[in-house]
């Protein structure tokens, strides 16, 4: 569903993303992890077509993000780390607006179900200004899901969510993945996403250090950090330079 080939992004001479290649298939939940400044947000924005790549290509469901931007964007959704809503629009109006932007017909039924799923049904007519940060994040998620995207990109989605909110979001993401969507999320909360993601992409300074499934990740570094190591242990081992850069496993 998401195909990234030799993606490179340079800003004024600085390389933010350096020749990344990977694929996220339908049903897969990929965790994009790396230290600050690793190029995670740039990668997600390049996949969403916001940052035109300096080199390489990105395709969403077979549509090239540069050459067929409208078709590609119709099939993806990006949820940024800081939820920004229109203060004087209600929750329901946000869904209405998003459905119109993406050209979704008969969106009311699925939207009702989304609100119930994300525990927002009783806040349907609240103005965005009246919501807490966690609620706003949930509304952003609901808006991203209303057009049933085939590729779902989430940048630090757990910021501001309480434990119940995190569980609700996880359930929603798992359901979308089970329905065939390709999900890609970046996060610093390694312990939180360890159980959610089916595969991982570890980057540092824009370069790929590891790409593979959870089992492949453990197997790859079992000898160096121990069989019972957590994702956090492996992350430090890989990103702090104690492990050699690995060839992509997938």
């Amino acid at each position: 569903m998401i195909e990234v080939r030799q993606l490179t992004k340079r800003y004024e001479g600085r390389v933010a993303v350096d020749g990344l290649s990977f694929t996220v298939r339908g049903g897969e939940i990929l965790g994009l992890v790396g230290p600050n400044g690793a190029g995670k947000t740039t990668t997600l924005r390049a996949i969403a077509g916001i940052h035109p790549p300096t080199g390489g290509s990105v395709a969403i469901a077979g549509f090239d993000v540069e050459r067929q931007p409208i078709e590609a964007r119709r099939r993806l959704a990006l949820i940024p780390d800081e939820p920004q809503l229109f203060g004087t629009m209600t929750v329901w109006e946000h869904l209405d607006f998003t459905a119109r932007v993406y050209g979704v017909r008969d969106w009311q039924g699925p939207a009702e179900r989304l609100l119930a799923e994300l525990e927002l049904a009783d806040r349907r007519d609240s103005l965005a200004d009246e919501l807490s940060k966690g609620m706003k994040q949930k509304v952003a998620v609901a808006c991203a899901l209303v057009h049933d995207p085939q590729a779902l990109l989430l940048d630090e989605p757990l910021t501001g969510l309480d434990p119940r909110g995190i569980r609700t979001l996880y359930d929603a993401l798992r359901r979308r993945a089970a329905g065939g969507a390709a999900v890609m999320l970046s996060s610093h909360l390694l312990g939180q996403i360890e159980g959610l993601c089916t595969s991982f992409l570890i980057v540092r300074q824009g370069r790929l250090l590891f790409h593979g499934t959870r089992d492949e990740l453990r197997a790859r570094y079992a000898e160096e950090v121990g069989a019972g190591a957590t994702l956090e242990d492996i992350f430090f081992h890989v990103t702090e330079g104690r492990a050699p850069a690995a060839e992509p496993a997938a």
Binding site: A48, G49, I70, R73, P83, Q84, V101, C143
Partner: peptide, 11 residues
């Protein structure tokens, strides 16, 4: 808000 909702949208 416009950046969030419109920049990655099919617009």
């Amino acid at each position: 808000q416009e950046v969030q909702f419109l920049f990655a949208a099919p617009v």
